[in-house]
Amino acid sequence: MTFSIVARCAETGMFGVAVSSSSPAVAARCAHARAGVGAVASQNVTDPALAIRALDLMALGSEAGQAIDVLRASAPHMEFRQVLAVDAKGRTAIHSGPRALGVWAEARGVDVACGGNLLANADVPRRMVEAFEASSGHLGDRLVTVMQAAVGAGGEAGPIRSAGLKLVDKVSWPVADLRVDWSETCPVVGLAELWSIYKPQLAAYVTRAIDPSDAPSYGVPGDE
């Protein structure tokens, strides 16, 4: 019931996750990333603790593959889980348990890993990786492009209802954490619209957090 991407920008070191599902508020459970460490998507009968543990392992020096191996060997119920990871050097790894739901598949490359379950077809993750590798520019733009490609490739077997995008870069909090938690229409379209509004303001929000005296105007009535 979910398809997702975890990715790293080789030029900036920014990490991102994008995800969509028929379930409500999918990104609240599945999208995890830590600046300077990596990004992880934990999905399919989701256990968010798996993503947190994988990020902790990578923060201690584990490669993405080593972190996934630890989860596979030690966490319960891994036959139900799907976990995607990318680390600080762009190495990627995926665990897809044999009891993942419906048609499930995975694909990965340098700086990118994609996977899904209850898919319309098993080709969707490969098409997502290809879309990422063919794209350029801001990581947020690339993630949106990938999610649009996933929908174009068939996406989930049924209607999708939620989507989210998370980016981390240099500071300890997400520089973008955008969510369409429920939509009767395509949430990926809504996510793309949100990103187009948020992207021009992203750097200003970071500046306001670090040094308000150097922040640009807020663009609200009464702001001088």
Rank of each mutant, 00 (worst) to 15 (best):
A209K: 09
G109I: 06
M128Q: 14
V26R: 07
D141V: 12
G164V: 08
G137P: 05
P76T: 06
A209L: 02
E79M: 02
R29K: 06
G137D: 09
A25Y: 02
V124M: 12
G137M: 11
E224F: 09
C9S: 13
A150C: 09
A28Q: 12
H138W: 10
R108L: 09
D181S: 15
L165A: 11
A113T: 12
G90L: 04
P187T: 05
R127S: 15
L60C: 13
A85V: 11
R142E: 01
P216C: 10
G115Q: 08
H32W: 14
N117D: 03
P48A: 09
V103E: 14
E156G: 07
L194Y: 11
V180K: 05
A113I: 11
G97D: 08
L191V: 05
S23T: 04
A149E: 11
G116I: 00
A153G: 03
L84A: 12
L118F: 02
V40A: 07
T2V: 04
S217L: 08
F3E: 04
A149Y: 13
V146H: 14
R126Q: 15
N121G: 15
P200D: 04
H138V: 03
S22P: 00
A105D: 03
V151P: 00
A209F: 01
A59Y: 03
K170E: 01
R29F: 13
R53A: 13
A149N: 09
L194F: 13
A153N: 09
V151M: 07
I68G: 10
M58Q: 15
P24E: 02
E11Q: 12
G13W: 05
A113C: 14
D141S: 12
V189D: 14
E133M: 12
R34G: 00
A59F: 00
M1Y: 08
S196C: 01
D87N: 13
A41G: 08
R91F: 01
V171P: 02
D56A: 14
V45Q: 11
V45I: 08
K89C: 06
A176Y: 04
M78P: 11
G90I: 03
S96E: 01
P76F: 04
V112W: 04
L57N: 02
S62W: 03
G164C: 10
G38S: 03
G109T: 06
L55G: 08
G13Y: 08
F132C: 10
E63D: 12
W182I: 05
S136R: 08
G109Y: 06
S96Q: 06
Q43V: 04
V103D: 06
C30N: 08
G36P: 05
E79F: 01
A54C: 15
A67R: 13
F132Y: 15
R91V: 01
M147V: 10
G152M: 09
N121D: 14
S135I: 05
R208Q: 05
K166F: 00
L60F: 08
G164F: 13
